Simulated assay, not measured.
Amino acid sequence: MEVRVLGPVEVLIRGTPVHLAKRQHRLILGILGIEVNRTVPSEQLIELLWPGRPPARPRAVLHSRLSELRALLRAAGDGPVHQSVATGDDGYVLRIPTPAVDAHRFGELIVDARGSTSDLRARDVLRQALGLWRGPVLGGWSLAGPAGALVSSLEAARLTAIEDLYEVELRLGNHRLIADELAALSAAHPTRDRLTSAAMLALHQSGRSAEAVSVYHQRRVWLSTELGVDPAPALQQLHVAVLRHDPALEQVSRPDQLDRPA
């Protein structure tokens, strides 16, 4: 069984999607997938399914929903697949291999990429990891409490992986290919210094220094208006370097620089 949570919740058995019509079934399976092989307390699931308005006898209703989910999984497979959703210590647990959940496979690939000594390989693995994402975690459901923190953590990890990828692309000299993508990402995520820095550098190296300066000014205005602060010192220094056409900013990777020392 494979569970996908990096986008709308999906479950596949032997590669075939299982139709989960009820939102509650998808939400339960998604949370159990994120917490794979760890017991999720019943109270947490109850709060997620019925925030602030639980039904009468909520544990009984929750048990009923889990029974329905197991029945759907049983009907989709001829083995003990449905037994993967098990009763734990005052809660429920999804017992499947960790890499069978896309969120955990994503994490493993990110670790692999960061341990690589080759920028070419790091780029390929990062793109593979980011390719697992089909949209917002759990399809964009807004969750509170511990589950909300888990979702936010995954979304933040995605942005960090995107930053890692584009910094690798810059080292490989692909600034012209990524400049527009980075400018759009920087505008969409104005709190991310690394995206703004990479966008400025890619634009400048592509002969679009005026646009690089514009990215900086947009960031400065947003920070001043929304947070009442100035850009980080590193961004300010990059801005000055772009204005001065500092030769150090023109350096790009050559083929003999693609493999970094361990």
Rank of each mutant, 00 (worst) to 15 (best):
E2R: 13
I13T: 09
T16G: 12
T16S: 14
V18R: 10
V18Y: 09
H19D: 15
H19C: 14
H25N: 07
H25Y: 03
H25L: 02
L29G: 02
I31E: 03
I34H: 02
R38Y: 14
R38N: 14
P41E: 08
E43N: 15
L45M: 11
I46V: 15
E47I: 11
E47A: 15
E47Q: 15
L48T: 11
L49P: 15
W50D: 09
G52F: 11
A56I: 08
P58N: 14
R59D: 12
R59C: 09
R59N: 14
V61I: 10
L62G: 03
L66C: 03
L66V: 10
A71K: 13
L72A: 01
R74N: 00
P80N: 06
H82S: 09
Q83M: 13
A86G: 11
A86S: 08
T87L: 03
G88V: 05
G91Y: 04
Y92T: 02
Y92K: 01
R95W: 06
A100N: 14
V101T: 04
A103W: 04
H104S: 08
R105Q: 00
F106K: 06
G107P: 08
E108D: 14
D112L: 04
A113D: 11
S118V: 07
D119F: 00
R123L: 01
D124G: 09
L126W: 12
A129Q: 06
L130S: 04
L130K: 03
L130E: 07
L132K: 00
W133S: 04
W133F: 04
G135C: 03
P136T: 01
L138T: 05
G139Q: 06
W141R: 12
S142N: 13
A144D: 15
G145H: 12
G148N: 12
S153P: 01
L154M: 10
A157H: 10
A157K: 08
A157C: 07
T160Q: 07
A161I: 04
E163C: 12
V168F: 00
E169N: 12
L170P: 07
R171L: 06
L172C: 08
G173K: 01
H175W: 02
R176L: 00
L177Y: 06
I178N: 01
A179M: 08
D180F: 00
A183D: 06
S186D: 05
A187Y: 08
P190A: 05
T191A: 11
R192A: 10
R192T: 11
R194E: 10
L195I: 12
A199T: 09
M200A: 10
L201D: 03
Q205V: 05
S206T: 09
A210D: 13
E211V: 00
A212H: 10
V213L: 14
V213R: 10
V215L: 07
Y216W: 10
H217T: 05
Q218A: 07
R219M: 04
R219I: 02
R219V: 02
R219Q: 04
T225Q: 12
V229T: 14
D230P: 07
P233K: 13
L235H: 11
L238T: 03
L238F: 03
H239G: 02
A241C: 11
V242I: 11
V242M: 04
D246T: 06
P247G: 10
S253P: 15
Q257D: 15
D259C: 07
